[in-house]
Design a protein around this nucleic acid. Structure first.
Lengths: 241, 241
DNA sequence: TGATTAAATTGATATAGATCAATTTAAATA
DNA sequence: TATTTAAATTGATCTATATCAATTTAATCA
């Protein structure tokens, strides 16, 4: 009989949100337990393979995504093939944006990824019923805006060395925020991706990291793990020489 | 007797929104006529002098601002005095952000300015009563975020020339949007401010503008007005040489 | 209106970071 | 485990933009 379980789709429909791993960090964390089954209905979960595209810059944007598992990078591509990475996303981050224009960037999976997918219309209708959620989404979006403003300033005005130092410190505090160890940090991205994120070239990133190593401001645990001498890094940032 | 007019303050209290010049472009444009007197009560209007600061980076942020008249620039200052301008604001733009952290940038008047000022608490309480407004604010903030992402890509990856070309074209379409003439554009800011906005120096801005002039891609009507050869400018942007 | 101050332009030079190229190291795969 | 492929590092050189400095033009003020 299965009266309701299979009514909508194969995504556990009404129960998936109850067991969601990312809920604690997601925009939907403010939804009360008893409202979750209803909320569950307006999204579906989908898995993506390593390096697959979730959507492409320029495509029609009808969906809003919430990252549940894995990492996603969002980036813009220029006519000449140059790339600017806008962000490396973590579980609980949302993307695709809440508006029905075209995607202004591409979203690509780094490793295996699971996302919740919301149709704009459905999400919009749900927001009408839940002002708390709407306000929370507004807060999160405002926060994203502030971070993006920081990046404009960093890319517009800081030297390569300072951009990298700042990048390391940011990763460290991000890790702390979500309860991971803040010191040896892990760089899940390649040097090339770091460069594309910081508005630099691989070579410059590599050279500057080498310098920081030789000055013992950082220490490589292995090629992906970096131990930070935080006081020295902080002083690097406020150093006007 | 004046039973209600002076109840709250000297800001026309309940009627100022009815006559607001900026309403058509403001986040509050979705508020119905009959709800305006109530909405009017949660903000006050204030005038600011040319070059005065509305708030400073780092100060406690208890207010949300909506620009009614004039222009405002928002910018970040670094320890060494360098500046990164985040935006030149027009009537209908909001700033100060809807969140109670510290201001992450400074807001300064360009010319005489009039602002609507909202206390966070009061605005927050009002949003609870008006989901339409909350959603609209979310939309606008999302839009700001998209624009800021564009700027990260532009500053991170485009040459000085392309940044300037893009800047001119943006001003032109912004003017069109608010119903002003889109071709000779007016540059209300100094070359120095342009440089601080684009992550360049004055000298570079000046030189690149001179080149565009000599190549007849732009033509100066006077030092502040620029006539754009739009097709040529557009092709500059997609030019990979 | 002339004097003062600020803004913009132009030139000469320096340099941070890009580009091109080779090598080393690490990761993926047969 | 050896082989292939990709990522990272390092070197040599170039170039776009910054810096320093002088001049011109425009704006402000007494």
């Amino acid at each position: 009989m299965e009266p309701r379980r299979s009514e909508k789709n194969n995504n556990y429909s009404e129960i998936k949100c109850l067991h969601c791993l990312a809920k604690a960090h997601s925009f939907c964390k403010c939804i009360a337990q008893d409202k979750l089954p209803d909320f569950s209905k307006i999204s579906s979960q989908k898995k993506f393979k390593d390096r697959s595209y979730i959507f492409l810059q320029g495509e029609k944007n009808d969906y809003f995504y919430n990252l549940v598992q894995g990492n996603v990078k969002i980036f813009k591509v220029f006519e000449d093939g140059r790339i600017q990475i806008l962000g490396f996303l973590y579980p609980g981050d949302f993307f695709g944006l809440y508006s029905s224009k075209n995607f202004s960037y591409t979203a690509e999976c780094i490793g295996e990824v699971t996302c919740c997918i919301f149709n704009h219309k459905d999400l919009d209708a749900y927001l009408d019923k839940n002002i708390e959620l709407t306000k929370h989404l507004l807060h999160r979006t405002t926060n994203e805006l502030t971070l993006m403003q920081d990046r404009v300033a960093i890319i517009g005005r800081l030297s390569a060395r300072k951009r990298i130092v700042n990048f390391f410190l940011n990763i460290s505090s991000q890790r702390k925020r979500i309860g991971w160890q803040e010191n040896p940090i892990v760089l899940p991205m390649t040097r090339n991706e770091m460069a594309d994120y910081l508005g630099l070239t691989v070579e410059t990133v590599s050279r500057e990291i080498s310098k920081l190593k030789s000055e013992e401001i950082i220490k490589m645990v292995d090629s992906k793990q970096v131990f930070l001498n935080k006081p020295l890094l902080e002083s690097e940032l406020s150093n006007n020489s």
